[in-house]
Nucleic acid binder design. Structure first.
Lengths: 209, 209
DNA sequence: CGCATCTTTGATCTGACTCAAACGCCGTGG
DNA sequence: CCACGGCGTTTGAGTCAGATCAAAGATGCG
C-alpha cells in the first residue's frame, strides 16, 4: 500500500525543451508544478507556432487531462521543471486535489482572455496584458518580490504567446521600457506602476487576471 | 415533486440580441440548444468586440457554468433560439446529462483551436477554419444536407469571431468564392470540396474539428 | 575560447485596417 | 402600393501596424 501511494504521487524533473506530454498522448498523470515554467503549444505545418497555455509554479498541468482521454497539444518545459506526478489511474489523488475544478475554470477563463487579446488587441495591449497576467500569477504563487518577479521567457516565447513576431516584440518592449511602464532584463520583470500598465492592457474595469 | 421536475427542465425562447446571460451573472441553469444560434463575446472599452464561442443546435450553453460560480462574458442569441433549461440548482439534471464532461472537453479544445487561428493564421486560413468547423458541427447535429448547411451569421459576426474587420471578411470571402472553394449567400453555406477547404485552413493532418 | 542562442538594429514590404460612400434587401407604416 | 429607414453587403482609395529579410552585437555555457 505504501508503495502504491509512492507510485501515484512522486517527484519528477524536466529539462528545457523536454516534453511533459507529446501530441496525441494519453496522459496518465497530471503534474503539479513546484518550480519552473512550461507551455502548451501548437505547430502549424509551415512552422508557425502558437503557445496556448503557460504553466507556472503552483499550476496544475493540465486540468483538462482529467476530462479528455487524449491531449491534442504537446507540452514542453521552458526551464528546468520540478513537479509532483498525480496519477490519473488512481483517481482518488485527483478528486482530493484541493480546488481542482476552480483551477480548471481559471485556466479556461484565461484562454478566453487570450482569445480576446489575440483577436482584437494591439501589440502594446497584448504585451501589457500578458506581463500583467504573469506577474499576478507569480504574485499569487508567492513568487513576486515587491513589484518584480522572475520571467524566464525569451522574446521568441513571448512572441509565440502573443501572436506577434520576435522582432516586433523586441521593439514594442523597448518603447514600453522607454516610457517607464516596465523594466525587463535578464529574465526579471519589474512593474513600477501596476495601474499604468493596466490602462495599457485595454482591460475592462471588472476584468480580473 | 412533479412540479419540481417540470421547473428544473423546461422550454425557453430567445429573440435575436436577447441575453441568455449577462456579464457577472451567476447562472443558475444551462441551456440545451434545440434550435437557433447564440454566441458568447466580450466588448473592449472602446467598442472592439471578440466572439469567444458559438453555440449551435445540440450544444450545451455553457458547460463551464457548472464549474465556475459566475460567468465573465455575456451570451446573446444570434437568431431565434429555442432551448431547454437544465437547472443547476438541482444538480442531478446536470450529472445525468449524457457525455457532459466530453462536451466541456470539446468546447475547451475548440477554444484552443481558435487561439491558434487568431494568433497565427491569415484571413483565408481563419475563414476556412471557421466555416469548416461550423459545417462539421452542423453535420454532427444532423443539420447538414449533403455539402451544405445553414449559416445564420452576418459578415460582421464572422469578423468578430475571426478577429478581422467586416470589410476584409467580405473581400476575402469573395476571393474564396471566385476560386470555387465555397458558396455562401443568404445564410446558406455550401462547400463543394471539403478537402480543398481543409488545405486552405492550415490544419495539421491529425487535427479534428 | 568557441559555438549557440538571444537580443537588437535597419530597411523594406504587405496584409489587413480605416474611412467613406453606394447599393441591395426587407419589414413597416402611411 | 410605394416611400422610408435600418441593416447588411459591396466597392474604392489611401494608410498603417506589424511582418519580413538581413546582419550585427550581446550573452552565456561547456
Amino acid at each position: 500500500m505504501l508503495s502504491q501511494i509512492a507510485a501515484s504521487e512522486d517527484l519528477v524533473f524536466f529539462r528545457p525543451h523536454q516534453f511533459l506530454t507529446r501530441e496525441h498522448d494519453r496522459p496518465e498523470a497530471l503534474y503539479d508544478i513546484l518550480e519552473g515554467w512550461a507551455c502548451r503549444h501548437r505547430l502549424l505545418p509551415d512552422g508557425r507556432r502558437q503557445i496556448t497555455a503557460l504553466y507556472l509554479p503552483g499550476d496544475l498541468c493540465d486540468p483538462m487531462w482529467s476530462l479528455a482521454p487524449t491531449c491534442h497539444e504537446p507540452v514542453i518545459a521552458l526551464t528546468n521543471v520540478r513537479a509532483t506526478r498525480k496519477s490519473l489511474v488512481d483517481p482518488s489523488t485527483i478528486d482530493r486535489h484541493k480546488g481542482f475544478s476552480s483551477r480548471l475554470a481559471e485556466s479556461v477563463e484565461r484562454q478566453s482572455n487570450w482569445l480576446v487579446s489575440l483577436g482584437r488587441k494591439t501589440a502594446v495591449e497584448r504585451l501589457a496584458h500578458l506581463l500583467l497576467e504573469l506577474f499576478e500569477r507569480m504574485r499569487r504563487a508567492g513568487l513576486a518580490y515587491g513589484q518584480q518577479c522572475a520571467l524566464p521567457l525569451t522574446q521568441t516565447d513571448i512572441a509565440d504567446a502573443t501572436g506577434l513576431t520576435a522582432v516586433h516584440v523586441n521593439r514594442t518592449l523597448q518603447s514600453m521600457r522607454s516610457k517607464g511602464v516596465l523594466e525587463l532584463h535578464s529574465k526579471w520583470l519589474r512593474i513600477p506602476d501596476l495601474g499604468a500598465l493596466r490602462d495599457l492592457a485595454a482591460l475592462g474595469p471588472h476584468d480580473a487576471l
